[in-house]
Computed example of a mutant assay.
Amino acid sequence: MSQDFVIDAFPRDDKGRGASRRLRREERKIPAIIYGGGKDATPISIWHNELKKALENEAIFSHILTINLNGKKESVIMKDLQRHPYKLLLTHADFQRVEQDQEIFVQVPVHLLNEETAPAIKTYGGVAFRLMTEVEIACLPKDLPEFLEIDLTDIEMDQVVHMSDLKLPEGVRIPALQHGEEHDQAIVSVSQPKGVKADEEADEAEGEGESEEGSEDKE
């Protein structure tokens, strides 16, 4: 993974809604917490705009991040991010400590390749319908991929790609697949838009009707 994310953090002693509001309003920071790794949870605060800027890169959700707390650095992943219900503001973040020899569970984005040039789409008028934009994987930190890919080049019309169809990097697994086929969720399907499909079916029915009428006239 080429991208490095380093987030400066500050100790946080005050707790409660009032303290959090003051933190956001007066210091332009948001409350956060670091937990896991066999250590006590550590309340921290981080710069609101710094995190907001980092979030412009989707890779932040599928990378090992570095929290710099008073010069002490910890490796973490972002596990939860809370936002204001209607303002463009972040309100809280949860970070989980990462141990290099322990498996982590992370939601990673799924990218579609060759969507514009795939024959089912370019030639036959299909559309790629995204049913999932990310998938939860499990792996050691060193094996964490930035994203997963689905190549649409050989996907046929009305085909559905499931989680089990994904090509996973070495050392990566999808936990949901261990719980049976019913958990093998669909990620993307390629088919014609409903309106187009309905028109074609109507045309076919009309054509069949005309053929039957022609046969009756001959009789």
Rank of each mutant, 00 (worst) to 15 (best):
M1F: 09
I7A: 08
D14F: 10
R17I: 00
R21L: 05
R25M: 01
E26C: 05
I30V: 08
Y35M: 11
G38Q: 11
P43H: 14
S45N: 05
S45Y: 02
W47Q: 07
E50D: 11
L51Y: 00
K52T: 15
K52C: 12
E56Y: 08
E56T: 11
N57T: 04
E58N: 15
I60C: 06
S62P: 12
I64V: 15
I64Y: 03
L65A: 02
I67L: 11
N68C: 04
L69N: 06
L69G: 07
K72A: 01
S75N: 14
S75R: 14
D80R: 15
L81Q: 06
Y86T: 10
L90G: 07
F95S: 07
Q96T: 14
Q96Y: 04
V98R: 13
Q102V: 06
P109Q: 06
P109D: 02
L113A: 06
E116T: 15
T117L: 01
A120D: 07
I121K: 03
I121T: 06
K122D: 04
Y124M: 10
F129I: 14
F129W: 03
L131Q: 10
T133G: 12
T133L: 03
V135D: 02
A138R: 14
L140S: 02
K142D: 11
D143C: 12
E146W: 00
I155C: 10
I155E: 05
Q159V: 11
M163D: 08
P175D: 05
S189T: 15
S189V: 15
Q192G: 05
P193R: 08
P193H: 09
E204N: 10
E204R: 13
A205G: 10
G209W: 04
E210D: 10
G214M: 11
